[in-house]
């Protein structure tokens, strides 16, 4: 990398860190909510109180700053990480379900971290991406040749395979939003990632829990995945 670029990169990181330090040292972040306060504002939000939503977001901003510290040295712009974390926090407050999680702060931490990780992955993926319809040259008669034209399989099969792979990727992304236990149960139950399909009884034995508990976890995980797919649709 050119020395000038190094200087710019270093300046960007330092500027970001300074911004964070100034927030922390000047105590610019609104104080986090206590459990009782959080409960109170969540109830207000459920009643449609817009101000409660603002308070729930603002008073959890400290979480964003705390979580992005984990990504120091990732090479990503610090300001970008702050913004992405804030997007994760806004999503968390919008999707939080009191019946499913105990504390908003716990759920929001997961959403913020997930948002950053997914953004990083999608950025990395985009770098190596190439469209099937990308022109890669011309034939003898001067007609444009697309990437798809030179693939050994026929075009429809390629498009179908790509679509299936995209569905699979979408499923993997959504699996990341489940708890490790829910993910494990689904992977074993449906033989994902090349694993052998197992019965609920076999999974129960493997995880040292009851079959009915495995059944409940499986149902909950499928419900959560369905919700995610429906939300996207």
């Amino acid at each position: 990398m050119l020395p000038g670029l190094w200087t710019l990169l270093a300046a960007s990181v330092i500027q970001g860190i300074m911004l964070l330090i100034s927030y922390v040292t000047q105590n610019s972040f609104p104080k986090p909510l206590t459990e009782e306060e959080e409960k109170y504002y969540l109830e207000k939000l459920a009643e449609g109180d817009e101000k409660a939503k603002e308070i729930l977001i603002e008073r959890n901003l400290r979480l964003v700053a705390h979580i992005i510290k984990k990504f120091e040295g990732s090479g990503d712009d610090f300001d970008d990480l702050i913004s992405i974390g804030t997007i994760g926090l806004i999503k968390a407050v919008h999707t939080f379900n009191v019946k499913k999680s105990s504390r908003l702060a716990t759920y929001a931490s997961r959403c913020i971290e997930n948002e950053i990780l997914m953004y990083m992955r999608s950025k990395k993926k985009m770098r190596a991406e190439m469209s099937l319809y990308e022109p890669i040259g011309t034939d003898k008669e001067g007609n444009e040749i697309h990437f798809m034209d030179v693939l050994s399989t026929d075009a429809e099969a390629v498009a179908e395979m790509v679509s299936r792979n995209l569905d699979r990727e979408q499923l993997w992304r959504k699996l990341n939003n489940l708890t490790p236990q829910e993910r494990k149960v689904l992977m074993l139950r449906f033989g994902l990632k090349g694993k052998e399909r197992k019965t609920q009884k076999e999974i129960a034995k493997k995880l040292g829990i009851s079959r009915s508990y495995v059944s409940r976890i499986e149902k909950r995980a499928i419900d959560r995945l369905s919700e995610q797919f429906l939300a996207e649709a």
Partner: peptide, 27 residues
Amino acid sequence: CEEAISGLAWDDPRYEFYKSGLKKIWR
């Protein structure tokens, strides 16, 4: 904007726009 952010997918072309916009609130 709030509604767009709350449903924003990582591969949405508008992601950069909202990401840049949110930087302003921290300055």
